[in-house]
C-alpha cells in the first residue's frame, strides 16, 4: 500500500515554508488539466452519487423525526435489520475462520490444484448475485446436491435464516482471503525460524508470532466481508424464503415497501442502511490506516 505523498515530496517546487503558507486549497503544479479533470470528476460525482443520495436524505428530513422513528421501529423492520446485520456478522466470523485457513493453505502449502483453487476464490466477486442466488438455492434445496444429505441429518438450509447466512458467507469469502493472503505471503520466514530457535513449539509460534502480525489484515478483511453482507440482496432473496419477521432481510423490505408505494418507510430504512454503510466506511478507513502503520512498524 502506498500512502499519499506529502506535498513536500514533489520535486517540482522547493519546500520553502513561506511558499507552503501561500498555497490555498491546491498546490500549484506545472501539469495541465486540473480544472478540466477535477471539474468533470465533481460534476459526474454530484450527478450520479451526491445529488441522488442527498435527495434520499432530504426526503427523510421531510418525514420529520416522529414519522422516521415510527417507520423504522415497527417489529417487521427491526427484525429485518437484525437479520441483515446479525446474519452478516455471523457470516463474517465464519469467513474469518475459513478464509484464514484458505489463505494459509494457498500461501504456505504446495499441492495439486492450488492455482485453480486460488482462482476459484474470486468467483463470488465475479458471479452475478442473481446467478449465485438461484444456484445456492437449488444446491441447498431439499432435493439438492447438498440439501438432500443435510435434510437426512435434519438440517434445513434453504428457505430458513440459515440459508441467508450461507449466501452471505458466499459473497464475503473473497474479501477475507484476498486481504489476508498478501500479508501472509510477505511475512518474513526468519521470525518463525527465530521463534523455532528459541524453542517455541509450532503452535506457540503460530499463536504468538504469526497471528498477531496477521491480525490487522484479518480484522480489515472481516469488516469488508461484513460491510458487503449487510447490504447484500441478489444472492439472498432466493434462498431466504423471505418470511416476514423470520427470514426477510432489510434490503428486501425496502423493495417491498416501494412496491406498496410506501415511499416514506422505504426511504427511512434506506437512510438507516446508508448511515450504517457510511459508518462502516469510516471504520474501514481507520482500520486500513492502522494495519498499514502496523505493517510498516
Amino acid at each position: 500500500m502506498t500512502s499519499l505523498p506529502s506535498p513536500l515530496d514533489s520535486p517540482t517546487l522547493p519546500p520553502s515554508p513561506t511558499y507552503l503558507r501561500r498555497w490555498g486549497w491546491k498546490r500549484p503544479s506545472v501539469l495541465p488539466g486540473f480544472g478540466l479533470t477535477m471539474g468533470f470528476t465533481l460534476f459526474w460525482l454530484s450527478l450520479i452519487v451526491l445529488i441522488p443520495l442527498g435527495g434520499m436524505i432530504l426526503k427523510t428530513a421531510t418525514l420529520g423525526w416522529d414519522a422516521f422513528f415510527n417507520a423504522i421501529s415497527t417489529p417487521r423492520v427491526l427484525a429485518a435489520l437484525r437479520l441483515s446485520i446479525g446474519g452478516a456478522l455471523i457470516a463474517a466470523i465464519i469467513n474469518a475462520v475459513f478464509g484464514s485457513i484458505i489463505a494459509w493453505v494457498l500461501v504456505r502449502y504446495r499441492f495439486p490444484g492450488r492455482r485453480l483453487a486460488d482462482a476459484l476464490v474470486d468467483i463470488p466477486f465475479a458471479l452475478p448475485t442473481a446467478v449465485a442466488g438461484i444456484a445456492l438455492t437449488t444446491l441447498f434445496a431439499q432435493n439438492g446436491w447438498l440439501g438432500a444429505p443435510l435434510d437426512k441429518l435434519g438440517i434445513q438450509v434453504a428457505y430458513t435464516p440459515l440459508g441467508v447466512i450461507v449466501a452471505l458467507i458466499f459473497v464475503g469469502l473473497p474479501f477475507v482471503v484476498r486481504t489476508v493472503q498478501p500479508v501472509l505471503a510477505d511475512l518474513d520466514p526468519e521470525i518463525e525460524e527465530a521463534a523455532l530457535c528459541l524453542r517455541a513449539s509450532r503452535w506457540q509460534t503460530i499463536r504468538r508470532v504469526i497471528l498477531p502480525s496477521l491480525f490487522p489484515a484479518l480484522v480489515t478483511g472481516t469488516a469488508l466481508a461484513f460491510a458487503r453482507a449487510v447490504g447484500e440482496y441478489g444472492s439472498v432473496i432466493f434462498i431466504a424464503g423471505n418470511l416476514p419477521m423470520v427470514s426477510e432481510i432489510a434490503p428486501l423490505l425496502i423493495v417491498i415497501k416501494l412496491e406498496e408505494f410506501s415511499y416514506a418507510e422505504a426511504t427511512a430504512i434506506g437512510t438507516v442502511m446508508l448511515s450504517f454503510a457510511f459508518l462502516m466506511l469510516l471504520a474501514l478507513n481507520g482500520l486500513q490506516r492502522w494495519s498499514r502503520r502496523y505493517e510498516e512498524a
Binding site: A227, G231, G234, P251, L258, G270, A277, M280, L284
Partner: peptide, 12 residues
Amino acid sequence: SVSPVIGGLIFV
C-alpha cells in the same frame, strides 16, 4: 459500500 437496493431507491 451501500446496498445495491439503495442504488435503485435513490433514483426512484
